Simulated assay, not measured.
Amino acid sequence: MTVAVAVQVAAFGLSALLALLRFPGALRGRNRGMFTCMVLIALAMALSLPVFYNAVDALLGGRNLTNLVLRLALYAVFVILGVKAAAAFGAPRAGKLIVGPIGLVVLGLTVGLTVYLFAASELPVSSAGLMIYDDQRSVQLYASVGRLYPGYVAACICLPALAAAANTRLKPLHRLGAGLVGSGLVIVVIFCALIELFFIGVFGLLLPFTAVILVTLGLTVMWVSHLRQRRRPSRNLLAESYQNVS
Rank of each mutant, 00 (worst) to 15 (best):
A4W: 04
V5R: 14
V5H: 13
A6I: 12
Q8L: 13
Q8P: 01
V9I: 15
V9N: 01
A10R: 03
A11Y: 06
F12I: 04
L20Q: 08
R22F: 10
A26D: 06
L27M: 13
G29P: 03
R32T: 14
G33L: 15
F35L: 06
T36K: 01
I41L: 10
I41F: 11
L43A: 14
L47N: 09
S48T: 12
L49D: 05
V51F: 14
F52T: 04
Y53M: 03
N54L: 14
A55W: 12
A55P: 01
V56C: 06
V56G: 03
V56S: 05
D57I: 03
D57R: 02
A58P: 00
A58F: 05
A58Q: 08
L59G: 00
L60H: 07
G61W: 10
R63K: 14
N64L: 07
L65E: 08
L65I: 07
L68S: 06
L70H: 13
R71L: 11
A73K: 05
V79F: 05
V79A: 06
L81G: 10
G82A: 08
K84N: 11
A86Y: 13
R93I: 03
A94C: 02
G95Q: 14
K96F: 08
I98Q: 08
I98M: 09
V99Q: 10
V99A: 10
V99E: 09
G100I: 13
I102T: 12
L104F: 02
L104T: 09
V105G: 01
V105T: 14
L109I: 15
Y116D: 03
L117M: 13
F118W: 14
A119F: 06
V125M: 02
S127F: 11
S127P: 09
A128P: 12
L130E: 07
M131D: 09
Y133E: 08
D134W: 12
S138C: 01
Q140C: 00
A143Y: 14
G146W: 11
G146H: 10
R147T: 10
V153Q: 09
A155I: 01
C158V: 13
P160T: 11
A163L: 15
A163D: 04
A163E: 05
A164E: 05
T168G: 00
T168W: 02
T168F: 02
L173F: 09
H174P: 00
H174L: 10
H174A: 13
R175K: 10
L176A: 13
G177E: 06
G179N: 07
G179W: 08
G179T: 07
V181P: 04
S183I: 09
G184C: 10
L185Q: 08
L185S: 03
V188F: 06
V189L: 04
C192D: 14
C192V: 13
C192E: 15
A193V: 15
L194R: 12
I195S: 11
E196F: 02
F203E: 05
G204F: 04
L205M: 06
P208E: 06
F209M: 08
T210V: 04
V212I: 15
I213Y: 07
L214N: 03
V221H: 02
W223C: 01
V224N: 01
V224F: 10
S225C: 12
R228G: 11
R228L: 14
R228Q: 14
R231E: 15
P233G: 02
P233H: 02
R235N: 12
L237F: 03
L238H: 03
A239G: 10
E240C: 01
E240R: 14
E240F: 00
S241H: 06
Q243G: 11
Q243D: 04
